[in-house]
């Protein structure tokens, strides 16, 4: 496609990684979710989730809130407005690529 940039160039590389993509997808469906809920839904270990969440938090995509329920500490995760917008845009780009691939296959 001379003169046009392929939509893959607008994909955010940070959330292309499948685990980070899955974390963002899970959080996109809720207001806030407990750390253990995201761990179970995405099916990763505590340490891997913690590592990936730190990367997403540093990028400004995920907010981490720590609190207590009774005496038990709990960590809550949510998408920031920037994270929600970025993930939405990522899905739109993937949709565009999928449509182009389907059109090319026809």
């Amino acid at each position: 496609m001379p003169g046009t940039e392929h939509p893959r160039h607008s994909l955010d590389e940070l959330i292309q990684a499948p685990v980070r993509f899955s974390i963002m997808a899970t959080l996109s469906g809720v207001g806030e979710a407990e750390f253990s809920f995201v761990r179970d839904t995405v099916q990763v270990s505590d340490s891997n989730l913690s590592k990936q969440v730190t990367i997403l938090e540093n990028a400004g995509y995920v907010r981490v809130r720590k609190g207590y329920v009774g005496k038990r500490p709990r960590t809550w995760l949510s998408l920031t407005p920037v994270g929600r917008e970025t993930f939405s845009s990522q899905l739109a780009t993937l949709q565009e690529i999928a449509q182009q691939a389907a059109a090319a296959a026809d």
Partner: peptide
């Protein structure tokens, strides 16, 4: 494929939403 990623995103978001 991109479609596989979209399907997975849909599945995860729906599961989270239902919770």
């Amino acid at each position: 494929s991109p479609q596989a990623a979209l399907d997975d995103a849909d599945r995860l978001a729906n599961a989270a939403r239902r919770s």
